[in-house]
Design a protein around this nucleic acid. Sequence first.
DNA 1: GTCGACTATATTCCACGGAAGATACTTCAA
DNA 2: TTGAAGTATCTTCCGTGGAATATAGTCGAC
Lengths: 152, 152
Amino acid sequence: MGVTDLAQAFSDLVRYETRLYNALGARLKAEHGLSTGQYEFLRFIGGRDDCRVNDLAREFAIAVGATSKGVDRLEAAGWVARRPNPENRRSCLLGLTDAGRQLLDAATPTFEDELRIRLAGPLTAAALDRLASTVARLRSTVEDAGIGQPTG
Amino acid sequence: MGVTDLAQAFSDLVRYETRLYNALGARLKAEHGLSTGQYEFLRFIGGRDDCRVNDLAREFAIAVGATSKGVDRLEAAGWVARRPNPENRRSCLLGLTDAGRQLLDAATPTFEDELRIRLAGPLTAAALDRLASTVARLRSTVEDAGIGQPTG
DNA sequence: GTCGACTATATTCCACGGAAGATACTTCAA
DNA sequence: TTGAAGTATCTTCCGTGGAATATAGTCGAC
């Protein structure tokens, strides 16, 4: 157990994540016509009844302006609908349309299959479990500290 | 050791990486006036004598067109210079200017300090070492398979 | 009741990446 | 020698995200 080369670990982490995201995107686009980011938005919106633009922005650590435009595109595609929030007229609530839910249902097995191949496949069950708990810990420390959340 | 929730592990990995990249960017921008991506390009170019646009594109798994434009911006900032490749007139070689090398030298302690805080800090030495070896393994499996490399 | 501080989203401009196509160059088989 | 196949980069158009700003709405102190 020597001194870990942090720059190398960082590079490996970012390069792996970039290629994994691209690989998911290529497959989702080819088989279902949507990008990885769109899939993630649909999955998040579809998993709750009271999703707002701000909730998406916080979950994905992107700016609320960018999130609003991303929701515009999902709306234009017919997969998501905005509806007024009875509790707060400044915001609206997001929901999947029937087409959006059908697309999510169709794309999820593809998404999970590619993760089995590219994330679980190269690792032992023990190594995968440790990776999962380590990245969960790292995520919670930066989120709890409010680190890395864009401003606009 | 149960069945690992791959979608959750994927989400934690991507959300953590996004926030880490943003946190590095905020600090590098505030202290040195460059983005994380620009820093990574300078570091890669500065570490070799014969870097070409294609080499950068492969290393960072981005399209060569995008890489060329990124190099344009580093050139415009005065940190990188293109020079003809005597062995192949189709390509050119990239090098750091004096200003680019000074900037890299100044920014590297900041980069490494932020990695100590956000990557090493929350983990034991053993957990960090295992994370490093696991992401190195994952990276090499996708790169060896040519997965996730854009086309343009 | 009012008003200031704060919240929530949309819009605009710009940076940066993807994909496709254009152009220049290299290599090797015929 | 030549030409086809492949290589290397640049350019264009478009998608997507960041930051700043504008607008609308909420809430609590005074």
